[in-house]
Amino acid sequence: MKMFKITSEPINNQDVIDSVVHHNAGAISVFIGTVREMTGQKQTKFLHYEAYVPMAEKQLERIGTEIQEKWPSAITAITHRIGTLQISDIAVTIAVSTPHRQDAFEASRYAIERIKEIVPIWKKEHYTDGEEWIGNQKGTKTYPAGHPEGVVK
């Protein structure tokens, strides 16, 4: 299967995990992002994800390359779902295998943080009292140069 994939189908975690299995791996760390119902006082009914698919897959692949530069023996696979997702559905699955566990934990954390910075995917919240495109999730980031940090061409 493709190691870096945007899909409109439900994600099968095991497929993502299987694609990083390696005989020299001593650990596989898996991160699963799921749809949360309550954000503060706001209640989510469902979510809609949209992506610039070809570019998003390239950026996921770039994250894989960055991980390999930082943790040379790591193998990474990431699948992100788009379309309409219900509460508790899986939005993203990341699997990283490494020879030792600490690197696997760190690399999978790195992958999800980078997804939130550089991968062109957007989430629209459909709340019980309205809807909203989520962007700039920390409310602090602007991109005066036109690109996120660390993504110079």
Partner: peptide, 10 residues
């Protein structure tokens, strides 16, 4: 040319 609003994947 693509104009990409602040992303919110994950």
């Amino acid at each position: 040319v693509a104009f990409i609003p602040p992303v919110s994947g994950g």
